[in-house]
């Protein structure tokens, strides 16, 4: 029971940081979403020890473990665009998938090549 109260309190703190991020985004008309700004703020506050890790630990672990759950309503939004999967639109779906694979291939291999070279040097 104590643990679930902790989780709820931790999530409240994370939610406040999210709202601070939203406020910064809107006030300064930034490109970066409020949630990402909130994440950067939390990271900085952890670094300079304004927020103790024990204030968010259980809540953060819980939310990260179930990250997929929070995405579901957004991805279900695809139902309004099912026409895209018929006719000409399917080409766009395939292009998106192909381009996504190429991003993974290039980003992944460039960094893997760099790290393995670096690791080899150190050995």
């Amino acid at each position: 029971m104590l643990k679930s109260i902790k989780i709820v309190l931790h999530i409240c703190l994370l939610y406040i940081l999210f709202q601070v991020g939203n406020w910064i985004e809107q006030t300064f008309h930034l490109f970066i979403p409020g949630s990402v700004i909130g994440m950067i703020i939390l990271f900085i506050l952890l670094l300079i020890k304004v927020i103790n890790i024990s204030w968010i630990e259980e809540g953060a672990t819980f939310m990260i473990k179930h990250l997929t759950f929070f995405f579901i309503p957004v991805t279900v939004g695809i139902m309004s665009y099912l026409d895209l999967f018929r006719g000409n639109g399917i080409v766009l779906v395939l292009i998106t998938i192909a381009s996504t694979l190429l991003v993974m291939l290039s980003a992944g291999h460039v960094s893997q090549w760099m790290i393995t070279r670096k690791e080899a040097k150190h050995d």
Binding site: L14, M39, L47, E57
Partner: peptide, 23 residues
């Protein structure tokens, strides 16, 4: 989305939580 919005709203703090493993 009358209910889904509540779940999506929590996507915000969930992204904020990613600072924890980063830290």
């Amino acid at each position: 989305m009358l209910g889904g919005d509540w779940v999506s709203e929590l996507l915000g703090p969930a992204v904020v939580a990613l600072a924890y493993p980063l830290y």
